[in-house]
Design a protein around this nucleic acid. Structure first.
Lengths: 195, 195
DNA sequence: ACCTGCGGCTAATGACATTAGCTTTTAAGG
DNA sequence: CCTTAAAAGCTAATGTCATTAGCCGCAGGT
């Protein structure tokens, strides 16, 4: 009987693909083993357990996610960068719901956790994009949190099917990006301060 | 041996309280039974199963949530209503993380699902608040989705501890509400249209 | 007092995750 | 080639849950 030839990376990648198919909650060790043509306990030769598997999927996914955002923003600035990055994020989440859920479910385990640099890469891309708006440096953290909140909220609500079907969701997304763009322009450090 | 005197409502309420303590994922039938001084299978005399329990917690929670938002917005308009409603939401989610998670996890089961009116109550409050900004009627749905996205995103990220601790989170929240308020004012139907 | 149904209990089943311990492939070195 | 040891699979066993079956007694209405 030939071996399956698995390793950590292969198990993690298959787990990520399976999570996208059946949802992170539907991802079981048994189902993943079956998908890989192997018995369940064999997976434990490659990952420490389900929690470890999900953590590895999270690291893999956040890096892929970071790549997508960075590539979209690359070479653009201001409104163009915002729109391209946001659309890239929306598309990525819709195409990889299980991966996105894993990235959100994972908790940082220590200061050497590879999850940290992956998260930093994502934040770095958004921060670079925001720089194009020349905000007051003290306000940039607020703008970053606002951006994360709105994009994350929209993505999770859409992925969960929580928006009514009445009006076109893509249109709402575009309107929302306009809203953010105008608001950020109004917040440029040479504009009037808020309040 | 005296009876415990449980009923659907008592089990649901205890489940909601327990979910807030241990997280929705930590909510098990066994733990809830123990908390109620009863054996696990006895719970099945009151709820159909774990999924039914969570669904009932979701209905209960969304109605409580709707009350909180409505009460906060009541008697206010425009920016005051936005700020009061948003702060009420933020506080409610931080105090009731398990309930909020249940409200998001639940899926509508049919057109007679009591979850539907509960959701409608929440949306009605936000819609009433937005009316104070006199938006173009066709844009109101977009503004509502934007508002849900940003508040939901912020609440879940904060509840999950996903914001760095560097800058004050309350300050970011306030900044974000200013951002929304200014953006909505700029979108009033008598202002210039976007784009 | 009776009897009926509701609410609680014990026991059993089945899905998972995980661990222990055995076997076989594989590949590296003599 | 032949040996050998670690790596990678497997079977069997354990423990935790959710769920179901089926029994029993208390409570309230007749």
């Amino acid at each position: 009987m030939p071996r399956a030839g698995l390793d950590q990376a292969a198990v993690t990648a298959a787990g990520a693909a399976l999570a996208d198919e059946v949802g992170l909650n539907g991802l079981s060790m048994g189902l993943l083993a079956e998908r890989l043509g192997v018995r369940t306990p064999s997976l434990y030769k490659h990952v420490a357990g389900q929690a470890d598997l999900i953590h590895r999927i999270a690291v893999l996914s956040l890096n892929e996610f970071a790549d997508a955002i960075r590539d979209a923003i690359q070479g653009r600035a201001g409104r163009d960068a915002l729109v391209a990055g946001a659309h890239a994020m929306r598309r990525w989440v819709l195409e990889h719901p299980g991966r996105y859920a894993a990235g959100n479910a994972a908790a940082v385990t220590g200061s050497d956790d590879p999850l940290l640099p992956a998260i930093q890469r994502v934040l770095a891309s958004w921060t670079a994009m925001l720089h194009g708006y020349h905000l007051d440096p003290g306000k940039e953290i607020h703008a970053l949190r606002m951006l994360r909140s709105i994009l994350h909220g929209f993505a999770t609500l859409e992925a969960a099917g929580s928006f009514q079907i009445a009006a076109d969701i893509g249109e709402s997304f575009t309107w929302m990006l306009d809203f953010i763009d105008h608001g950020l322009n109004a917040n440029q450090s040479d504009s009037l301060t808020t309040r």
